[in-house]
C-alpha cells in the first residue's frame, strides 16, 4: 500500500504536469504572436542598459521603434557607432558616420554664481526651480542638486568642486538622459575630441549677465573678433562655438574678460598674449609707417 501511495503521487503529478504542459504547448500555438526576427537582432545590438536615453521605454521599445522606422539606427547612443552600423545593416541602410559625441555641461557658475536665497527643500533641481524662480540669481545656471547625476545610468556625471555638474567623457555614452533631466537645458552634446567650450549659457545682455555670476558670458563679442576660423559667434547674447570650424587654437580663451571659455587661460597667459598682440600691432604700425614714408619719398622723387 505504501508503494502504491508513491506510485499514485508520481503518476498523478506526472499526468498533471503533462496535461498543463500540453495545454501550454497548444496555447502557445493558438496565441502565437508573429514577431519580426529583425527585432531580436536589433535588440542584441543595443546597449541593454534600459537607460531610456532614446526616449522609448527600455531597449525593447527602442528596437521596435527602429524597426518601425520611427527612430534612427543611431537612436541608441550608448551602443556606439559599431552597433549602429550593425543595426543599419540589419535594416538594409548605409552605415552612419560621425565622431563620438559626449554630453557637456555648459555652466561654470556654481560657487561663482550669486545665490538668491538658501534653498533647503527637496534636493532636486526641478523642485528647486519651482521655488521663487530658483535659488540662483542666474536663470540659466547649473543648480547643482544633481538631477542629472541621478538620471545617469553610467556614473558619468558628478557635481564638481565648484558645485556645477561635470561630465566624465570617458564614461559618457551620450544617451541624453541628463539632458532631459536638466530643468535648465544646459547639457548639450559635443564632439569628444574638441577641448574648447563656452562654459555659460546666460542669454542676458551685458550688465544683467555680469551681476549674477563672476563667470558669465556677457556677449561682448571679443572672442568672435579674435577667432581666425570664424568658429565662435555671439548668438542670443551668449557665445556659441561651431565645432565643425573650431580647431582648438584657444585664442578666444585668452581674450575672454570673464573666463567663460574653457580651458580657462591664466592671467599670465593672457598678459603674454596681450604683449604679443601689442608687439604685432606696433610692428604692423611701424611697417605701415615705413611703407607710407617710402611711398611719400617715391612720390617726392617723381
Amino acid at each position: 500500500m505504501d508503494i502504491m501511495n508513491i506510485v499514485y503521487a508520481v503518476v498523478v503529478l506526472g499526468v498533471l504536469g503533462a496535461v498543463f504542459g500540453a495545454i501550454l504547448a497548444v496555447a502557445s500555438k493558438i496565441f502565437e504572436v508573429q514577431k519580426d526576427p529583425r527585432e531580436e537582432a536589433i535588440l542584441s545590438h543595443l546597449a541593454g542598459a534600459n537607460c531610456g536615453g532614446c526616449g522609448y521605454p527600455g531597449c525593447g521599445g527602442c528596437a521596435a521603434a527602429i524597426l518601425a522606422g520611427n527612430a534612427p539606427v543611431t537612436a541608441c547612443a550608448p551602443a556606439g557607432p559599431e552597433n549602429a552600423a550593425a543595426i543599419a545593416e540589419i535594416m538594409g541602410m548605409a552605415a552612419p558616420t560621425g565622431e563620438r559625441q559626449v554630453a557637456f555641461v555648459r555652466c561654470n557658475g556654481g560657487t561663482n554664481a550669486k545665490k538668491r536665497f538658501e534653498y533647503i527643500g527637496v534636493q532636486d533641481c526641478i523642485s528647486a526651480t519651482k521655488v521663487a524662480g530658483s535659488p540662483l540669481e542666474c536663470n540659466f545656471g547649473c543648480l547643482g542638486f544633481g538631477s542629472c547625476v541621478a538620471a545617469c545610468q553610467f556614473g558619468a556625471i558628478s557635481i564638481g568642486e565648484n558645485g556645477c555638474a561635470v561630465v566624465d567623457p570617458e564614461k559618457c555614452t551620450n544617451c541624453g538622459a541628463c539632458m532631459k533631466a536638466c530643468p535648465r537645458g544646459i547639457i548639450t552634446s559635443v564632439p569628444v575630441s574638441k577641448k574648447v567650450h563656452v562654459l555659460c549659457m546666460n542669454q542676458d545682455k551685458g550688465k544683467a549677465a555680469m551681476t549674477v555670476c563672476s563667470n558669465s558670458c556677457i556677449g561682448c563679442g571679443l572672442c568672435q573678433k579674435e577667432c581666425k576660423k570664424d568658429a565662435i559667434h555671439v548668438v542670443n547674447g551668449v557665445a556659441v562655438i561651431d565645432y565643425d570650424k573650431c580647431v582648438g587654437c584657444k585664442l578666444c580663451t585668452k581674450v575672454c574678460p570673464r573666463d567663460a571659455i574653457t580651458p580657462v587661460a591664466t592671467a599670465e597667459e593672457k598678459e603674454k598674449y596681450k604683449a604679443i598682440k601689442k608687439a604685432q600691432a606696433e610692428k604692423a604700425k611701424a611697417a605701415a609707417e615705413a611703407k607710407a614714408k617710402a611711398e611719400a619719398e617715391a612720390a617726392a622723387k617723381a
Binding site: L16, G21, I23, L24, A27, F31
Partner: peptide, 18 residues
C-alpha cells in the same frame, strides 16, 4: 505551484494575443 506557474504562463500568452 504547478497550477499557478502554468496559469500565469497561460495568462501571459493569452493577454499578449488578446
Amino acid at each position: 505551484i504547478l497550477v499557478i506557474a502554468s496559469l500565469v504562463q497561460f495568462i501571459e500568452m493569452f493577454l499578449q494575443k488578446a
